[in-house]
Design a protein around this nucleic acid. Structure first.
Lengths: 244, 244
DNA sequence: ACAAAAGTGTTGAGAATACACCCATGG
DNA sequence: CCATGGGTGTATTCTCAACACTTTTGT
């Protein structure tokens, strides 16, 4: 094992690096035609590398916070919200152009659409909408800074994968939701339609949902509201990710 | 986004941290009864935190190397070998006791058992076996330094998972191997016996193996030798991990 | 009554499993 | 020739996608 003493010099010669944390934040929002769109917030860069380009929200890791905490803080600073789901994605050791060495740790998160809507509405009322932050269609992004396009692509792949064997789509929904809600969100993530009958069977054989006695009454037959069963979390994830 | 200037001070006040890379290195070795055992090399610590305890091999990230390269180097320094498979596992942001902040990035790797055997034999001949390095049964470890027990546990879970839907067991075998070899390695990873007939069907419907015209002649009917088909790699992994 | 969504039942195709059976070789 | 592992065939079970069908509401 290589052991180096921590020296104090202006140039980056030894093992000191800076750690950045970025987060791909997904939520399902409605477009002009009221269609659900898988969306993510981006930040416009205001300084040199890639100035003016859109980038993933992020920041530097503080000395006294954990990686997860840094991701949450980043997310709060950008959207003012707490994630309903947060998972580490990958660590990138860029050796590029930068004068100082940077290691970038990427997280991905889900936000409940109702909270996003409320927050955006509040900002609109108080006229304090954050500058340089905008929501984009995750499947139709402009050219981003750094390799952020690839990162989003990978995250999207991971999300689509995970929605198949795990039940995380509820992370985009309020506490209580109908199966149609859950199915619509899942369809938005996957980009294809699902059979309502089979979808119902899959979720209720997986024991991830608790039926309530409440119903949503709409223009047709009322739909039962469900609630997420938090006791399932441990089994389906790995030993480490369950720490979140 | 928070931007901080890089200052030079003796204490860790700002965003500078050190990045360590550790690797869980798996190989299948034979015990005294010639039974295959999923094994990994550990290093005995020679300094203070957890002095004397066994730990995962690792080292500090150099300023000019990528994360993957650092993992490979670490692995070479410990075992003198190149991995047949290398994948990033997780980044840990320990905020503990340490005076300087450390972020630890953990990889896991597979080594071909024939190369390990050759290397160990060479060391034995030249009497230069590395000090403080020993192979352990991955399923029966002593109390390790830091949280390395949990990390190995998670890696083991990941490996067992992956051996189910992907075909990575070949990473533990020589270029040419019989289906019995591959099955034995898979059984060792999973810790349970598999049906030879069904195992055969599964691998040859997955198109990951190329049959050769060579056979291994033993005490019974000769078994056909197979070779791994490298063209499959791209499809089964995610966009990013395929960079390895 | 009717349109439309909620919810149930049925069927068929393909994958996973268990296991019976034949093949080829060294002793 | 026979014990043993290599290799094939087949029946059973299970999961999953497709879709017909019944139920319940608002209009």
């Amino acid at each position: 094992m290589v052991i180096m003493t921590r020296t104090c010099e202006p140039d980056t010669r030894d093992t000191d690096v800076r750690v950045a944390v970025s987060t791909v934040i997904f939520s399902v929002r409605r477009d002009a035609h009221d269609e659900p769109v898988l969306s993510l917030p981006l930040v416009r860069r205001t300084r040199d590398p890639f100035e003016g380009r859109w980038a993933l929200p992020g920041g530097w890791l503080d000395a006294q916070e954990s990686l997860d905490a840094a991701a949450s803080r980043t997310l709060a600073e950008t959207t003012g919200l707490t994630p309903s789901y947060l998972e580490q994605l990958y660590a990138f050791g860029v050796v590029d152009r930068s004068p100082t060495r940077v290691v970038s740790i990427v997280y991905w998160a889900l936000l409940r659409s109702d909270e996003v809507d409320a927050q955006v509405a509040a900002h609109a009322r108080q006229d304090d909408a954050p500058e340089n932050v905008e929501w984009f269609d995750a499947t139709d992004l402009p050219a981003l800074a750094f390799d952020h396009n690839e990162i989003v692509e990978y995250t999207l792949w991971r999300l689509r994968n995970k929605v198949g064997y795990s039940r995380i789509a509820h992370g985009l929904l309020p506490d209580e939701f109908t199966l149609a809600d859950l199915r619509e969100v899942t369809e938005t993530i996957l980009g294809r339609r699902l059979d309502p009958a089979n979808f119902r069977r899959q979720v209720d054989t997986s024991d991830t949902l608790i039926p309530t006695e409440r119903f949503r009454t709409g223009s047709h037959r009322p739909a039962r509201l469900y609630r997420y069963n938090r006791d399932v979390e441990l089994a389906e994830r790995g030993p480490l990710t369950s720490r979140l």
